[in-house]
Simulated assay, not measured.
Amino acid sequence: MHMEIPSLLAAGLILLGIFSLGFLSIKIKFPNVILYIIFGIILAGALHHNELLHFASEIGIVLLFFLLGLEFNISRLSGIARKIWPAGLLDVALNLGIVMVICYFFDLDLFTSFLIGGVAYATSSSITAKLLDDTGRMANREAEYILGILIFEDLVAPIVVAVLMGITTGGDFTSIDFLILFGKIIALTVGAILLSKTLFKKFEAFLDKISDEDFKIALLVGIALAYGGLALYLGLSEVLGAFLAGMMLAEMSKIEKVEHTVHPVKNLFLPTFFIYFGTTVEFGEGVPMVSFLVVLLIWSVVAKILVGVIGGRMYGLSNRVSFRAGLSICARGEFSVVIASLATGVIKVFAGVYIILAAFIGMVLFQQAPAITNKIYGKPKKKKKNLKVPGVY
């Protein structure tokens, strides 16, 4: 007998669960993101397709990327874009193209191969960004490269989703459809730049005039959700829209004014994204195609490390920093879930199992990336200061 849980009770239990798991993660020094996903899997039967949880998770992921966008003004973003495209194309070739070749050797048809390639392609933007923030590595040299790769993937992944949706709905995804989709991405980006240079040019002075913190929350969260929602309306990713919304305000001299207001709201809602992600993973009656799963997981790790090592060198990073970056981008997540939802039957179960294992492996590798790098390249040597004692030569 199925008992319907009142939304208010469900919300209270989820928040208490977030507190308990967050507290536990501090005590046992274990990534809270993994605990949230496992929590979601456990509650999948009661919360699957829960609209309240889904909506809260959307707010959390939008605010995370809104705050990330604040770190990238137009000049910095354009500089990254000029440097990141070779590594971005390498990422597509290794994680989408080669995966399709692997699928071919396991006798999968073209559509299924493309779908699994899409699932395996994109690094989880939310998991990676959250771990960068939690571990204090946002200021490291590889952080800019990692974020550049994530942005590149957030531009490519919606195209993959659109093509798959066009095929699954029985329609033909033509070159015209591709150009329209690309045009939407350009229009959304140009719109953000124009708003940054016009409407939001004196936004900092306007924000200083608002003394009530509640009104500031409504204004700033409203901007993030509106532009993220506009991206969704155009058939793009809300993550891309939220990032561009943050970029619109990045010209402010003191972005901490925005961060101080939005951070608490983001911290409240973001864990719900990972819980919701867990509720979407359906293991079914068992794990299908185990040998293929093992091969795919191994290649998924190897491919991302290569994107870090080779792409990082293209970007101008050292061997050490490039390797550390590669270990930090192995987790799969939200886009993989979106693409996997287009699958059916055994392939959907397979994709669900792959996503949760890839997310877990990726998060462990992220946590261990500095230690693994030090074991391979040795601990970085501290630069000795050449101090001269007066009178001594």
Rank of each mutant, 00 (worst) to 15 (best):
D109E: 05
G17H: 03
L35W: 09
L67A: 00
M314H: 06
I372E: 12
V309K: 05
K304T: 08
G166V: 06
I34W: 08
G97H: 01
V295T: 07
S253D: 14
V101S: 04
S57A: 15
A81M: 14
K266M: 14
L357A: 13
I185H: 04
A205Q: 12
L8S: 15
F23M: 10
C103A: 06
V92A: 02
A157T: 07
L306F: 07
T198H: 00
A93G: 11
L194N: 09
L155Y: 06
I41D: 05
K382L: 14
I217M: 08
T261G: 06
A192V: 08
F114M: 14
M289R: 13
V99I: 06
A303Y: 01
F215H: 13
G241M: 02
I80R: 01
S124N: 04
L90Y: 02
V156Q: 03
L110V: 14
F106S: 06
I80L: 12
A250P: 00
S126G: 12
V294T: 11
D107G: 02
F243E: 04
T189Y: 11
L16P: 01
K375G: 01
G117L: 03
N386P: 00
A87P: 01
I167P: 04
D177W: 10
E256K: 11
V92P: 03
A10Q: 08
Q368I: 07
I167H: 09
I61E: 01
A331V: 02
I298G: 00
L43E: 00
W299E: 01
I41A: 11
I74S: 12
Q367N: 11
Y145N: 04
L115P: 05
